[in-house]
Design a protein around this nucleic acid. Structure first.
Lengths: 337, 337
DNA sequence: CTGTTAGCGCGTTCAA
DNA sequence: TTGAACGCGCTAACAG
């Protein structure tokens, strides 16, 4: 490894002079500067950021920890991209990992990232106790929570308006005459319970009893969800519309509708948009989140905490958007009870 | 920040003893060990990995640089996920970034990551000179190239069999009677030229002249590709089949076919699979790459270089798989010339 | 079994 | 304008 000393020796100056040249500080005699730069070039010297940081140097080239649920999930991937882009100007880099909704692993990841000396953290925490985040925040680590509400006053969060998004979806289906609406979801995390509550609120507004609808909160796995949807469709009293609570579940419902050749007559709205959703027959009506904006806001808040060394306590809610593509605009065809 | 000294003071021992306890090395008296562990717990001490590394400690908790084309692209995202998963057991973390096919930026990223003291690098390099990788490799940094061939003997690569995959796609369409096949792609990178060559080889095998087919190598942008496809469909001598050269282009072609209501009569095969491809009408026949396997192999090679301190020079080619879903099995309907 | 010494690469502080 | 000394947090090597 080429160190500052090697460069100094090659250029015939002291390490300090090299440091000054590399960091563009102070005034350095231009001949020396040239000598140093030539040596840097020749030896391929790359400064050791860890050592600088250890020595106490402040930099704006932050190392940001980014913990998402699953980097391969389209929503997470877009969020990742957005954060990366927002960070790019400052020359900051992200240490990225997926937590798979496993709280213990998330805790471990935070530890490891702290050991790696991250300057800030953006995390989509798994369900459950966020105490490990509180502890980390107390040491002065700036943290922003995304996609989940924060347990702590001192930790800001950026999150979609899950409740309102789902309520809109529900209202939309009701406006097309549907009452027997099947909701496939779970209640394992706060966003999911918010979506469930949005659905219930939509029903209540229209004075639809929860027994008239079909509410399945045990749908964790796409394959299982697909089977559930098929069996509902084949039951005595099938739904006239479906609501999917997240992107993988939406795909499952679409598969079920197609497998039973009912996609033209049974309505469907999905929470979370999917690539190609517009090219289906009919196109999938979706409640779209805005991962790009969420990422931008989260990054902006974090940068503010980092640069101004202050504690933020704001919680931002980003609204969703209902995109009508056909599947949600199928009117109820079945006779009224 | 809590350091080893703080813990030592709190536990009434020397820093060295704390180090031994934390690193589980040597034998430490069990009472002392307990005292130390209690202090660690109480103070929330997190060891500074950078400092350990600076001191020269070897660890198996590697920090791996991962430079992809675009973390939000489904192919890259799957690759990312696979690498992350393969790395997880060793407790390694990735410093991840997108290069947007910009060589200069990729060069800069490698610099920055080197400054961050990464132990190894997995990169999907942009088109153009890879000299910056050669230089980095010469300093002893283990590098594995993915999704692109390597310019250097000493840098191993893992890549899909683009040539063969595209040749299979072409043969497949030809076996359904197609001769006037429109290929929408570019030749801006080695994988793309390999796909182009695979297409040409497929034509040649069937003694189809290149003037009989439609070969567009100027399709970089999905929106532009969509327009191209529409205008081809509306021309005097339209193609009876399309080939898309990558995922975003496939979507564009599907959109064009649907917009012109020709998806049932014009065949189509896409290179790269897409979520929901099976739920289209007809389903999209695709040449699927295997990002999971590519990631596993790349990680395995890198780990071998890291752990055994040796230089690998192998190049691995991962085969593709043709998935028939309907769009590629539409026979030619137009009269023979 | 435990502590002391020294130094990894770097930059702040101060002296020249 | 330049350089020397010092110490950031940590641990290998040695001493006790």
């Amino acid at each position: 490894m080429i160190t500052i000393k090697d460069v100094a020796k090659a250029a015939g100056v002291s390490p300090m002079t090299v440091s000054r040249v590399v960091n563009r500080t102070d005034n350095v005699n231009s001949t020396m500067r040239k000598r140093v730069l030539r040596a840097v070039e020749q030896l391929g010297y790359v400064p050791n950021l860890s050592a600088s940081k250890l020595r106490g140097k402040k930099s704006t080239h932050w190392t940001i920890g980014l913990i998402l649920r699953d980097v391969a999930n389209p929503f997470s991937a877009e969020l990742h991209r957005s954060i990366e882009k927002s960070l790019r100007d400052s020359g900051s880099l992200t240490l990225t990992a997926s937590n798979d909704d496993d709280r213990d692993y998330a805790r471990e990841l935070v530890m490891t990232m702290r050991a790696h000396q991250i300057d800030g953290l953006i995390i989509a925490p798994p369900p459950g106790n966020q105490s490990y985040l509180g502890a980390a925040a107390e040491t002065g680590l700036p943290i922003v929570i995304v996609d989940r509400p924060s347990d702590f006053e001192q930790i800001p969060s950026v999150i979609s308006d899950n409740y309102d998004g789902m309520r809109q979806a529900t209202r939309h289906l009701i406006s097309y005459g549907h009452r027997r609406i099947a909701y496939l979801g779970d209640e394992a995390s706060v966003p999911m319970t918010a979506r469930r509550d949005g659905f219930l609120a939509g029903l209540q507004e229209a004075t639809i009893d929860t027994t008239e609808a079909i509410i399945r909160l045990d749908q964790f796995d796409p394959i299982q969800a697909r089977e559930t949807a098929v069996s509902l469709l084949e039951s005595n009293n099938p739904p006239t519309a479906f609501i999917g609570s997240r992107n993988r579940i939406n795909v499952a419902i679409i598969q079920a509708l197609r497998a039973t050749k009912r996609s033209e007559e049974i309505a469907m709205v999905g929470f979370d948009d999917i690539e190609l959703a517009a090219e289906l027959d009919p196109g999938m009506t979706a409640v779209a989140q805005n991962p790009i904006l969420i990422g931008q806001i989260a990054t902006a808040i974090l940068m503010d905490m980092l640069e101004n060394n202050r504690v933020q306590d704001q919680s931002v809610v980003v609204s969703t958007r209902l995109i009508k593509r056909g599947s949600g605009e199928i009117s109820r065809t079945q006779p009224l009870n």
